[in-house]
Amino acid sequence: MNIVVPIKQVPDLVEELEIAASGKDLDREWLKYKINEFDDHALEEALCFKEAHGGQVIAVAIDGEDVDKALYTAAAKGADRVIKITGEVADNSHAHARALANVIGQLDWNMVFIGVQAVDERDGQTGVILAHYLGVPHISVVTEVQQSGGGVEVVKEFGGGIVAKLEVQPPAVFGIQAARQTPRYVPVAKVRRAMRGTELEEMDAGSVDVTAGSEVVRLFKPESKGGAEMIEGSPEEVAAKLAEIIKSKL
């Protein structure tokens, strides 16, 4: 079975996020991006599936910051094809889903593995919307996909550690929460080799005739509710104060 893995770059939350002067977007000038961690897990699960059962893994990404590098990294990890989606695509889940559906519709595919969510998906999860545009079922919060008979068996996670096993006849879209194993690491040298040896295909996003259905009025930083009493000093001093607090509470 062929698996398409859409990957998306999101702001690296380790960095301080600032709001742009418009008040409606992040200040993106100095923003550092990284691959959506759930997409990284989706790619890993797709590669594990391919290694077990064959087929192709096709990584696709809508053009944007550091997208070439993300796609070459996917190639270095084992993706068979890497495709950059070019053209005007607004920055919301619905537009992304429509562009992905336009491109995926032209590929020979059986399943889509996509990160279950991303930190900026204000108007819903791209994967679920994509499934609807492709006219196929979806399952969110998936932690494993295995071939079973003519279809696949999927593990979906609920709260409290309870999981469900579901049988699915592809085509389908799976929102991956975590791969069955830690996403593999590729050294920079291997990514560089992939940059020389991989054809980065480009496909047009096509007509993206959807909107988010809502407009951002304003962004703001969460108001502090007082929060924690901060304890300062040298590690020794901090440790002494913490020890005192802990003893008083237990």
Binding site: L26, V119, R122, E215, V216, L219, F220
Partner: peptide
């Protein structure tokens, strides 16, 4: 109007729904 907690809780977004 909906308030959403984005970017891992670092930024809040207030959205006006169309319709």
């Amino acid at each position: 109007t909906v308030t959403s907690q984005l970017y891992g809780g670092k930024i809040m977004a207030e959205s006006a729904v169309n319709g």
